[in-house]
Protein backbone atom coordinates (compact mmCIF):
# COMPACT_ATOMS: atom_id res chain seq x y z
CA UNK A 1 0.00 0.00 0.00
CA UNK A 2 1.30 3.48 -0.94
CA UNK A 3 2.51 5.54 1.98
CA UNK A 4 1.30 9.10 1.68
CA UNK A 5 4.07 11.57 2.37
CA UNK A 6 1.87 14.63 2.09
CA UNK A 7 -1.39 15.83 3.56
CA UNK A 8 -4.00 18.51 2.99
CA UNK A 9 -3.78 20.77 6.03
CA UNK A 10 -6.70 23.07 5.23
CA UNK A 11 -9.12 23.99 2.52
CA UNK A 12 -11.66 26.69 1.79
CA UNK A 13 -14.23 27.76 -0.76
CA UNK A 14 -15.60 31.14 -1.83
CA UNK A 15 -18.80 31.15 -3.86
CA UNK A 16 -22.23 32.77 -3.89
CA UNK A 17 -21.05 35.40 -1.38
CA UNK A 18 -20.11 32.75 1.20
CA UNK A 19 -16.64 31.88 2.51
CA UNK A 20 -16.21 28.41 3.98
CA UNK A 21 -13.17 27.01 5.75
CA UNK A 22 -13.11 23.27 6.42
CA UNK A 23 -16.70 23.28 5.06
CA UNK A 24 -17.81 25.66 7.83
CA UNK A 25 -19.21 29.08 6.95
CA UNK A 26 -16.80 31.75 8.22
CA UNK A 27 -18.21 34.74 6.35
CA UNK A 28 -21.43 35.49 4.52
CA UNK A 29 -22.13 38.65 2.51
CA UNK A 30 -25.16 40.16 0.82
CA UNK A 31 -26.22 38.19 -2.22
CA UNK A 32 -25.79 39.29 -5.81
CA UNK A 33 -22.81 41.66 -5.76
CA UNK A 34 -19.33 40.13 -5.71
CA UNK A 35 -17.47 43.46 -5.46
CA UNK A 36 -19.54 44.55 -2.42
CA UNK A 37 -19.09 41.10 -0.88
CA UNK A 38 -15.31 41.21 -1.41
CA UNK A 39 -15.14 44.67 0.16
CA UNK A 40 -17.21 43.50 3.14
CA UNK A 41 -14.85 40.55 3.65
CA UNK A 42 -11.84 42.90 3.49
CA UNK A 43 -13.34 45.30 6.04
CA UNK A 44 -14.61 42.60 8.40
CA UNK A 45 -11.21 40.93 8.52
CA UNK A 46 -9.46 44.30 8.96
CA UNK A 47 -7.10 43.68 6.07
CA UNK A 48 -4.82 46.65 5.45
CA UNK A 49 -3.88 46.48 1.79
CA UNK A 50 -5.33 49.42 -0.23
CA UNK A 51 -4.17 47.91 -3.54
CA UNK A 52 -6.98 45.38 -3.08
CA UNK A 53 -9.46 47.99 -4.33
CA UNK A 54 -7.58 48.40 -7.60
CA UNK A 55 -7.65 44.68 -8.43
CA UNK A 56 -9.96 43.11 -10.98
CA UNK A 57 -12.57 40.59 -9.82
CA UNK A 58 -10.41 37.52 -10.52
CA UNK A 59 -7.56 38.86 -8.40
CA UNK A 60 -9.95 39.93 -5.64
CA UNK A 61 -11.34 36.39 -5.58
CA UNK A 62 -7.85 34.83 -5.48
CA UNK A 63 -6.84 37.34 -2.80
CA UNK A 64 -9.83 36.60 -0.52
CA UNK A 65 -9.47 32.82 -0.86
CA UNK A 66 -5.72 32.95 -0.26
CA UNK A 67 -6.23 35.19 2.78
CA UNK A 68 -8.57 32.59 4.19
CA UNK A 69 -5.88 29.91 3.79
CA UNK A 70 -2.83 31.96 4.74
CA UNK A 71 -4.19 34.07 7.61
CA UNK A 72 -2.71 31.76 10.24
CA UNK A 73 0.66 31.35 8.53
CA UNK A 74 3.46 33.54 9.85
CA UNK A 75 5.36 35.69 7.38
CA UNK A 76 7.85 38.00 9.00
CA UNK A 77 10.14 37.98 5.95
CA UNK A 78 10.00 36.96 2.29
CA UNK A 79 9.80 33.20 1.82
CA UNK A 80 10.04 30.63 -0.92
CA UNK A 81 8.48 27.93 1.27
CA UNK A 82 4.92 28.23 -0.10
CA UNK A 83 4.41 27.64 -3.81
CA UNK A 84 1.23 28.68 -5.63
CA UNK A 85 -0.60 26.49 -8.12
CA UNK A 86 -3.75 28.10 -9.53
CA UNK A 87 -6.09 27.12 -12.33
CA UNK A 88 -9.38 28.09 -13.93
CA UNK A 89 -11.45 27.72 -17.09
CA UNK A 90 -11.97 31.30 -18.24
CA UNK A 91 -8.46 32.67 -17.76
CA UNK A 92 -8.79 36.49 -17.57
CA UNK A 93 -11.75 36.63 -19.98
CA UNK A 94 -13.90 38.73 -17.62
CA UNK A 95 -11.33 41.53 -17.67
CA UNK A 96 -10.45 40.94 -21.33
CA UNK A 97 -14.09 41.75 -22.18
CA UNK A 98 -13.95 44.97 -20.13
CA UNK A 99 -10.78 46.00 -21.95
CA UNK A 100 -12.41 45.13 -25.28
CA UNK A 101 -15.38 47.39 -24.48
CA UNK A 102 -13.02 50.33 -23.93
CA UNK A 103 -11.38 50.04 -27.37
CA UNK A 104 -14.33 49.05 -29.55
CA UNK A 105 -15.32 52.64 -30.38
CA UNK A 106 -12.65 54.40 -32.47
CA UNK A 107 -14.10 57.79 -31.52
CA UNK A 108 -13.85 57.01 -27.83
CA UNK A 109 -10.65 55.01 -27.67
CA UNK A 110 -9.55 55.24 -24.05
CA UNK A 111 -8.23 51.87 -22.85
CA UNK A 112 -7.64 51.89 -19.11
CA UNK A 113 -4.09 50.89 -18.09
CA UNK A 114 -5.46 49.74 -14.72
CA UNK A 115 -7.81 47.31 -16.52
CA UNK A 116 -5.27 46.24 -19.12
CA UNK A 117 -2.72 45.07 -16.54
CA UNK A 118 -5.19 42.39 -15.44
CA UNK A 119 -5.66 40.88 -18.91
CA UNK A 120 -3.50 37.93 -17.88
CA UNK A 121 -4.84 35.32 -15.48
CA UNK A 122 -1.51 34.79 -13.74
CA UNK A 123 -1.51 38.36 -12.42
CA UNK A 124 -3.56 37.06 -9.48
CA UNK A 125 -0.57 34.88 -8.52
CA UNK A 126 1.52 38.04 -8.34
CA UNK A 127 -1.08 39.81 -6.19
CA UNK A 128 -1.08 36.99 -3.64
CA UNK A 129 2.73 36.69 -3.78
CA UNK A 130 3.25 40.42 -3.18
CA UNK A 131 0.78 40.51 -0.28
CA UNK A 132 2.38 37.57 1.50
CA UNK A 133 5.99 38.20 0.42
CA UNK A 134 6.15 34.87 -1.42
CA UNK A 135 9.21 34.55 -3.62
CA UNK A 136 8.30 31.04 -4.64
CA UNK A 137 7.44 28.78 -7.55
CA UNK A 138 4.07 29.47 -9.14
CA UNK A 139 2.01 28.36 -12.10
CA UNK A 140 -1.42 29.05 -13.55
CA UNK A 141 -3.18 26.37 -15.64
CA UNK A 142 -6.23 26.91 -17.82
CA UNK A 143 -8.36 23.77 -18.03
CA UNK A 144 -12.02 23.19 -18.98
CA UNK A 145 -12.87 22.20 -15.40
CA UNK A 146 -11.10 21.56 -12.10
CA UNK A 147 -8.48 18.90 -12.78
CA UNK A 148 -7.61 17.17 -9.50
CA UNK A 149 -5.22 14.78 -11.22
CA UNK A 150 -3.21 17.64 -12.72
CA UNK A 151 -3.01 19.43 -9.37
CA UNK A 152 -1.99 16.22 -7.60
CA UNK A 153 0.84 15.56 -10.05
CA UNK A 154 2.13 19.12 -9.99
CA UNK A 155 2.05 19.35 -6.19
CA UNK A 156 3.90 16.05 -5.86
CA UNK A 157 6.58 17.28 -8.26
CA UNK A 158 7.04 20.60 -6.42
CA UNK A 159 7.31 18.96 -3.00
CA UNK A 160 9.44 15.99 -4.05
CA UNK A 161 11.95 18.24 -5.79
CA UNK A 162 12.06 20.48 -2.69
CA UNK A 163 10.96 23.57 -4.59
CA UNK A 164 8.72 24.45 -1.63
CA UNK A 165 7.62 23.06 1.72
CA UNK A 166 3.92 23.71 1.11
CA UNK A 167 1.75 24.36 -1.94
CA UNK A 168 -1.35 26.52 -2.03
CA UNK A 169 -3.54 25.03 -4.76
CA UNK A 170 -6.61 26.83 -6.05
CA UNK A 171 -9.34 26.75 -8.63
CA UNK A 172 -10.12 30.44 -9.09
CA UNK A 173 -12.80 31.03 -11.70
CA UNK A 174 -14.59 34.33 -12.35
CA UNK A 175 -16.70 35.27 -15.36
CA UNK A 176 -19.43 37.93 -15.56
CA UNK A 177 -20.42 37.76 -11.90
CA UNK A 178 -20.32 33.96 -11.60
CA UNK A 179 -17.40 32.70 -9.58
CA UNK A 180 -15.88 29.96 -7.48
CA UNK A 181 -12.71 29.70 -5.44
CA UNK A 182 -11.67 26.31 -4.13
CA UNK A 183 -8.31 26.23 -2.43
CA UNK A 184 -6.28 23.89 -0.27
CA UNK A 185 -2.84 23.69 1.28
CA UNK A 186 -0.57 20.66 0.92
CA UNK A 187 2.56 19.95 2.96
CA UNK A 188 4.44 17.14 4.70
CA UNK A 189 2.12 14.54 6.17
CA UNK A 190 0.91 15.25 9.70
CA UNK A 191 -1.12 12.84 11.80
CA UNK A 192 -4.82 13.61 11.71
CA UNK A 193 -4.73 15.56 8.46
CA UNK A 194 -6.37 14.48 5.24
CA UNK A 195 -3.99 12.47 3.09
CA UNK A 196 -2.99 14.11 -0.17
CA UNK A 197 -4.57 11.71 -2.66
CA UNK A 198 -6.32 12.24 -5.96
CA UNK A 199 -9.54 10.93 -4.43
CA UNK A 200 -9.43 13.24 -1.42
CA UNK A 201 -8.77 16.29 -3.60
CA UNK A 202 -11.78 15.49 -5.78
CA UNK A 203 -13.91 14.69 -2.75
CA UNK A 204 -13.33 18.00 -0.95
CA UNK A 205 -13.85 19.86 -4.26
CA UNK A 206 -17.28 18.25 -4.64
CA UNK A 207 -18.47 19.18 -1.11
Amino acid sequence: MEQHKYSISKWCTVSEEVVKRFDQVVFEGEKGDFVAFAKAYYKTNEIDYPKFFKMDALSKLAFIGSECLLMDEEFDKPTSDIALLFSNASSSLDTDLKHCESIIDKDSFYPSPAVFVYTLANICLAEVSIKHKLQSENAFFVTPSFDGDLMYTQVKYILETHRAKQVLCAWVEYLEGKYKFFGYMVGSYRQGELEHTRENIKEIYRR
Partner: peptide, 8 residues
Protein backbone atom coordinates in the same frame (compact mmCIF):
# COMPACT_ATOMS: atom_id res chain seq x y z
CA UNK B 1 -0.16 52.41 -13.35
CA UNK B 2 -1.96 55.30 -11.64
CA UNK B 3 0.31 57.69 -13.54
CA UNK B 4 -0.83 56.09 -16.81
CA UNK B 5 -4.47 56.43 -15.69
CA UNK B 6 -3.89 60.15 -15.04
CA UNK B 7 -2.51 60.54 -18.58
CA UNK B 8 -5.69 58.88 -19.95
Amino acid sequence: IDALELIV
